[in-house]
Computed example of a mutant assay.
Amino acid sequence: MKRCFREKVVHVLAGLVVLNLFACAGVTELDVSLVDDGIKKDPIEFVAPEFRPSLSAQRKMVDAMGPRGFDNEMLANIRQTGGSGRPVLLDEPKVTEHLVTGINGAPDVPVFIVGEKADSPRPAILYIHGGGYILGDATTDLQRLQSISQKHDAVIVSVEYRLAPETPFPGPVEDSYAALKWMADNADQLGIDTSRIAVMGESAGGGLAAMLTLMARDRTEVDRAEVDIVQQILIYPMLDDRTGSTKVMPYWMGAYSWNDVANRFGWSSLLGVPAGSKQVPAGSVPAREKDLRGLPPTFIAVGAVDLFVNEDIDYAQRLLASGVPTELIVLPGGYHGFQVSNPKTVLANRFHDAVDAALKRTFKVEDI
């Protein structure tokens, strides 16, 4: 049966474009059905009850729209209309802008620095925004990053990497590496303790953080890494191009927010070949990396109905099997980006508490 989807851009938050793409009635091609008395459950029944009212309202908004897939025209429309300008910032800590020299002749990379203070060395985070490798920008999360900086007394650098499909792999991760290297090289000026630099990313930003950590492990100076990463914090990371293409997911995973249609488009844009292809550029898909040894301690958090939940669990298992200290949090009923669209809910609070606890352990600091 022909597949079709209805979609609407709901909002852009935390660098994540939240889309609703709902399968038309009767679509069964990729469904792994769970039935009660022969009737397949509505996907919303797998979502935490506290999220259901807002998701039901969103679904009603899209039911009147006609079928359409994710394509370049839709991407252009989202980029044109999806953003709402820079967020209102807190008075403290201060946010400054800088241009980092690109690697090997690449364009300069804009970065936003939160909490720069050239006094005593403090922990630092390189933050990489989400958006499916094709959307988002480094400014969207700045107010939230200010709060994290203040809470953990940390310097945070948010990187404005180039987006696909205009800049395919390795451009976005090279931009991120340029920012990471700049942080280490300018640690005294920025007030950074180079022994406590973490990388953190959400969704596609989490995928880039994982790629970056692999790249940093493999790039050496005199038999040691150019930059030591103390931990990678991966928030529902986008790690496997095969999800939703050659790997079929249960129908309720990805039913809300980012789904398999968007996932194939995002990965194909980054890779320059169709998602799920037999061959992809080396280093571009963390889930396909054969050797995960020597990576820093890792924290992964994902919702149980997120499209990425299986790939994230699998990556955590492989890290553990490679001797990498790894913490995995799977939040029941959480969909992709739930803590952004529902920030004051019980599950969102559990999520934020887990991330804060991971950062405290990594940086070895008390509450500020």
Results as ranks from 00 to 15, higher is better:
Glu116Gln: 15
Leu89Cys: 03
Val32Cys: 00
Pro123Ala: 11
Glu221Arg: 13
Arg242Ala: 15
Gly38Glu: 02
Ser56Tyr: 01
Phe363Thr: 06
Asp260Gln: 08
Gly66Ala: 12
Pro107His: 09
Gln58Gly: 14
Phe112Glu: 08
Lys151Ser: 11
Cys24Gly: 12
Met215Leu: 15
Val222Ile: 09
Val12Lys: 07
Lys60Cys: 05
Pro168Asp: 06
Ala198Thr: 04
Glu174Val: 10
Gly244Pro: 04
Thr345Phe: 14
Ala348Arg: 04
Leu234His: 06
Ala209Cys: 05
Gln339Arg: 11
Arg162Glu: 08
Asp228His: 14
Pro332Leu: 07
Phe51Gly: 01
Glu311Tyr: 04
Ile156Phe: 09
Pro296Gly: 02
Val88Arg: 03
Ala348Thr: 09
Phe351Met: 10
Lys60Ile: 10
Gly115Pro: 01
Asp367Arg: 11
Ser284Asp: 05
Phe70Asp: 00
Val88Gly: 01
Thr167Glu: 03
Ala255Met: 03
Pro286Ser: 06
Glu7Ala: 03
Val18Lys: 02
His336Ala: 02
Val95Asp: 03
Val324Ile: 14
Asp228Phe: 14
Gly82Cys: 10
Lys181Asp: 00
Ala154Cys: 14
Asn20Ser: 09
Ala154His: 06
Phe351Gly: 01
His129Glu: 09
Gly171Met: 08
Glu45Tyr: 01
Val273Cys: 04
Ile113Gln: 02
Ala48Ser: 06
Val35Ser: 00
Ile125Arg: 04
Val32Leu: 07
Leu331Cys: 01
Lys117Cys: 14
Val17Met: 05
Arg86Gly: 04
Phe51Lys: 00
Thr96Pro: 08
Trp252Arg: 02
Lys278Asn: 09
Asn77Thr: 15
Gly85Tyr: 01
Val222Glu: 12
Asn104Lys: 14
Gly333Trp: 07
Ala210Asn: 07
Thr194Pro: 06
Arg52Glu: 02
Ile103Val: 12
Ser33Cys: 05
Asp240Ile: 07
Asp141Met: 11
Met74Asp: 00
Ala124Val: 04
Lys247Ile: 15
Gly130Thr: 13
Leu295Trp: 13
Arg264Pro: 13
Glu174Phe: 13
Leu190Glu: 03
Asp141Phe: 08
Ala138His: 12
Ala198Arg: 01
Ser158Thr: 09
Ala209Gly: 10
Ser176Arg: 02
Arg350Asp: 01
Gln339Tyr: 14
Leu239Phe: 11
Phe299Tyr: 15
Met1His: 13
Pro332Ala: 10
Ala225Thr: 13
Leu208Ala: 02
Ser54Tyr: 14
Gln189Thr: 15
Leu89Val: 05
Gly276Asn: 09
Ser245Cys: 04
Gly38Cys: 07
Ile128Gln: 03
Ser56Pro: 06
Gly136Lys: 12
Ala164Gln: 12
Val285Gly: 01
Val109Glu: 05
Asp153Thr: 11
Glu160Val: 11
Arg288Gln: 06
Arg219Cys: 11
